[in-house]
Amino acid sequence: MSSRRTTERLEHAAPALDTTSKALATTSDGFDPSARVSVAKAYKMFVGGAFVRSESGRYFQTGGGRADGGADPAVVNVPRGSRKDARDAVVAAKGAEAGWAGRTAYNRGQILYRLAEVMESRREELRVALVRGGADVAAAEREVERAVDRAVYYAGFCDKFQALVASSNPVSGPHFGFSVPEPTGVVAVVAPGHPALLGLVSTALPILAGGNTCVVVAGADDPRTAVVWCECLATSDLPGGVVNVLTGDAAEIAPHLAKHREVGALDVWTADAELRALCEREGAGSVKRVRTHDGEAIERLAGDDGQGLGFIERFLETKTVWHPVGV
């Protein structure tokens, strides 16, 4: 029965959450005193497991666009994250690091699977968010499906990549030697603007699967989708601080993350070559692992190339351990 309902919803051209705005649309002068007034959502950043405004009090506006609907007015205010917000997010990610890395890989996999379940149950809302962000309805639907599947993919990878990248080292001598992967620590991500949802999922989840925590700067093109995704994170079993999502201007925030000594690595997805180079330069001050990806790489995120062991491996360290063998 539930699957039939889903099918019916898919047939709607407009997003299902659009019902409240219909009343507004039917009045001739745009206002109907008898209609219900929708409850608009305040969009906030997600730091340390809580939804927060920018400490700076700054905001930027998003909205309009085609198929705009839902409960939101045409224009909404979104926090414009600051340097201090970035620092707070790093503190949260750092605080969550030991707990997340210290869980069993099996448990991390279960939590990511829980995230996939929550995303599945919120497909409708995610799709509406993407449409409001400018995606067309069919593409939004495909993106949400792919994003959920990708969450399932990485959930199942949490306890397997170790066997693929670890080694028993046949050293010449009476020693037992092996090398195991470990998380780098806090990874800062500059997420691509589009695809808004798949961009977040494809960059953040392999980082989590590897046992890292992260601070993500969501693309400014469609920050609302990022916030809806954060609501999925908040209602999955992910501990607070494991993923922190800032909204705002990546060109303003990312260099601060690149300089921050508690950030071990940067994953920068932007068509802005100057920003990529700036992050690489600033990251050098603390020998960060800086990975940058151009527009072409961002386009590949939507396809089958957008996932794989390589995404996890990028933010792993190799630890080699030796011990003598003897009696």
Partner: peptide, 15 residues
């Protein structure tokens, strides 16, 4: 690299 009960050991097969 972590050496337990040894130190400064190297081998081409050991990252």
């Amino acid at each position: 690299v972590v050496w337990g009960n040894t130190y400064n050991k190297f081998d081409p097969s050991s990252p």
